[in-house]
Amino acid sequence: MSKNYYLKRIGMVFVTIYLVTTFTFVLIRYMPGGPMDYMVAQLIQQGLPEARARQIASTYLKVNPDQPIHVAYVDYMSGILVGDLGISTWYDRPVLEIIISALPWTVFVMTVSLILSFAFGIALGAWMAYREGSRFDSVATIVTTFLTSVPYYLAAIALLAVFSFRLGWFPTGGRYNPDMAAGMTPEFFRSVLYHGILPIASFTLTAFGGWALGMRGNSIQVLGEDYLRVARLAGIPERDIVIKYVTPNAILPLYTNLMIAIGFIFGGSIILEQIFNYPGLGYYLFKSIETRDYPLMMGGFIVITIAVAISIFIADMTYSLIDPQAEAGDSRETY
């Protein structure tokens, strides 16, 4: 791998982001209906005659529906370069501002669930591998396989139905108690956690099984490696074998998956935050699709694209730092 290789990879990241942005832009424009139609429909529902509704909408919405797509495209792209993502047609606020206020909440929920599911999955997987073939292993395998196959949004709906609506233990929406002043107080943090627990749980519950099964498989493979046999023969205590031999070697192959998961989990937030009425990035993205709010939709998709592209890039680049063998990909003769 040469210097060129890295430059090429960085170039790829930009090209990917650019292409996806363009593609999304075109796609969005060809979606049936537009922001006008949505607002007009809303106004008509409120009892206004169609002509009046159209008039209000056109003064209210700062869109130019007659602008040809290529002109709109050039406008939009040049705006991005100076950090201007446009004004949301529905909220009538700068898209950048909305994203900046929403993003941390999404990042919070996603990171916590990712860390929890990864940590828990790894521990469980390693333990299952150690007890391979035991009752515990078979039960855990069944349970984890089941949980992984449940889509996170089904889990979300189930959790919401049971714990919020039926039992009333958790709130049905929001990021924190609105009566409370946001600040570095323990009460505030408690409220944030309280509101975040169900979204986090729905992701964690459906994701940890995958990590556990992956870790189990890798660990079983490592447990059968020659170096493990040597370590045992040389009398190295089991504790060192677990910490220094099995765990690092079994986790390594999962590392790339973890990075990629970070990227894709943003996509998951769209539906999850809608279900929990949790105003993060996904929530606004969903709303923007519903209201055909082109600028907000674009902004949201761009952020997700960037997150995915950068996560994959980081995974690629850092893998060689973590795995001592990664650079040795040359195929030498065995003899």
Binding site: D226, Y227, R229, A234, G235, K244, Y245, P324, Q325
Partner: peptide
């Protein structure tokens, strides 16, 4: 002591050779 078949994979790929020696010494 024993050196067995498959020596090519007898070392833990995530540990330097030095650590292998140190671990064995420590364990005994």
């Amino acid at each position: 002591s024993m050196v067995f078949q498959g020596a090519q994979s007898s070392f833990n790929p995530t540990m330097k050779i030095r650590e292998h020696f140190e671990l064995v010494l420590e364990s005994h």
